[in-house]
């Protein structure tokens, strides 16, 4: 019996930090915070210098406080978040099974792929006029375009995930006695999870991007609507509050998905 009990190779860092020089000085988050502070300072400087009506950070913070106090910020944020989450959830919930279907059954692929490829070339926003005419000006058309954006990004990467599952891995399961159902459940699903999660992240980005535009057209509340109103009244601080809120919410959701991805796909060999 060989006694190869060498210690395991060191765990590869999640990022490609190996390429960067050895860590010296302050930890990364400190630099991140520093960058934010610096950015705010530059912003404040530009505002003070009087760049065409640009509001300074304090002004925006004060407006954010006002909007938060009277509840509009929360209401708008929740309204937007609700649309994104519903559209995104519906989109991925449909995209994953459809992507699996396309990857697993040739017939399904042949039937569905032309539509997916075609609609992918149309920016979801271009569907808004049609959606509004067909679905009225309620929540439905907005959620629909967000759904479409999330669905199209996620379905393609799920499909990619299924078709790129290593043939040898499938064969390895088959020779251990696995039938189609087991291969699907225990090989295809886990092996394509990384692709699905990447698709979800892209889909979330697309959903978020679509949201604001959807809200610019016929909405009664929401971050996009509030920014649209602010534009009419030349209310720059409110626009900034809207932008920053969208950015922060998007970042939080992306980080959550990233954390899920790390947890679910930590088994991958990093190259």
């Amino acid at each position: 019996m060989p006694t190869d009990l060498r210690p395991p190779p060191p765990r590869a860092p999640a990022t490609t930090r190996a390429a960067s020089p050895p860590r010296r000085g302050l930890p990364l988050p400190v630099w991140n915070v520093l960058a934010v502070v610096l950015g705010l300072a530059v912003w404040a400087g530009l505002a003070r210098a009087g760049v065409s009506g640009l509001p300074g950070p304090q002004e925006v913070a004060v407006r954010a406080g006002e909007l938060a106090m009277d509840g509009t910020l929360l209401d708008d944020g929740l309204a937007s978040l609700r649309r994104v989450l519903i559209g995104f959830a519906l989109g991925t919930a449909l995209a994953v099974p459809v992507g699996f279907l396309m990857g697993w059954y040739r017939t399904a692929r042949g039937l569905i792929e032309p539509y997916v490829q075609f609609f992918r070339t149309i920016p979801p926003l271009a569907v808004i006029p049609l959606a509004i005419l067909l679905m009225g000006i309620g929540e439905t058309p907005k959620i629909f375009v967000i759904f479409l954006a999330a669905f199209l990004s996620c379905v393609v990467s799920t499909f990619q995930g299924v078709v790129s599952v290593d043939k040898t891995t499938i064969n390895a399961a088959r020779v251990l006695g696995a039938g189609d159902a087991v291969v699907f459940r225990r090989i295809i699903v886990p092996a394509s999870t990384p692709f699905i999660l990447v698709g979800m992240r892209v889909g979330l980005g697309a959903a978020w991007a679509t949201l604001v535009a959807a809200e610019l057209i016929a909405a009664q509340e929401g971050l996009g609507y509030r920014m649209q109103q602010a534009q009419i009244y030349y209310d720059l601080p409110s626009i900034f509050v809207g932008l920053i809120t969208i950015g922060v919410l998007g970042l939080i959701m992306d980080r959550l998905l990233l954390a899920a991805e790390k947890r679910l796909t930590g088994w991958q060999e990093r190259r």
């Binding site: 290593d166 040898t168 891995t169 064969n171 390895a172 399961a173 020779v175 225990r186 090989i187 886990p190 092996a191 999870t193 088994w267 991958q268 060999e269």
Partner: peptide, 14 residues
């Protein structure tokens, strides 16, 4: 009939 592949073909998530 057990098969051992050149590329190991382990299930990396297990």
């Amino acid at each position: 009939r057990g098969v051992i592949f050149q590329q190991y073909a382990l299930f990396p998530w297990l």
